[in-house]
C-alpha cells in the first residue's frame, strides 16, 4: 500500500512540475503579477469606473483619465473635499473606483485607495498598476 501511495505522490509531483515548467502555474518565487487591490489598465478599460487622479495639479492639468476626479493628496483639508466629491460621485452611481498616480514606483495611489476603503467600505476600489505611465503606453 505504501508503494502505491509513493507512486501516486510521484506522479502528482511530476504533473505539478509540468505545470510550473510549462507556465500553466506561476513559480513559487515569482512576483505576483498584480498586488492585492490592483487592477490592470486593460481590465479597467472594459468597466464603467470613477477615475481618481492622485498626482500633482500640474500633472493633472497636463492630461488625465476621462472624467477623472483630482485628489488633493498634499493638504488634509483639500483631501477631505476630494473625498466628499468622490463619495458624491459614487453615491450618484455606485461603480468601481480606480486611483492612479504617476507610474509603477509611485505609492500614493495605494495610500489614497486605502483611505477610500475606510470611507467607502461598500465600494470596489483599486489602484491602477503602472499608474499614468500605463495610459501613455
Amino acid at each position: 500500500m505504501l508503494r502505491e501511495f509513493a507512486i501516486i505522490l510521484l506522479l502528482t509531483a511530476l504533473g505539478t512540475a509540468y505545470s510550473l515548467v510549462s507556465g500553466l502555474a506561476p513559480l513559487p518565487w515569482a512576483e505576483p503579477e498584480l498586488a492585492a487591490g490592483e487592477i490592470r489598465l486593460q481590465d479597467a478599460r472594459g468597466l464603467d469606473v470613477i477615475w481618481v487622479d492622485a498626482r500633482s495639479e500640474a500633472e493633472f492639468a497636463a492630461g488625465h483619465a476621462p472624467n477623472a476626479l483630482f485628489y488633493h493628496a498634499a493638504d488634509a483639508a483639500d483631501a477631505a473635499g476630494s473625498m466628499i466629491e468622490i463619495l458624491e460621485q459614487w453615491l450618484l452611481q455606485p461603480r468601481p473606483i480606480i486611483v492612479y498616480c504617476s507610474d509603477v514606483g509611485c505609492g500614493t495611489s495605494q495610500q489614497v485607495a486605502a483611505e477610500l476603503r475606510v470611507n467607502l467600505p461598500d465600494a470596489e476600489i483599486y489602484s491602477l498598476k503602472g499608474g499614468w505611465s500605463a495610459w501613455l503606453e
Binding site: E4, F5, I7, I8, L11, T12, A13, G15, T16, S19
Partner: peptide, 21 residues
Amino acid sequence: ALPWLELVIAIGLLTPWLRRA
C-alpha cells in the same frame, strides 16, 4: 498540485495496482 492529484487518482482507480490507494 491538487488537480494533478485528482487526475492521477482518477486514472489509478481504473488500474488494479493503484486502485486501493
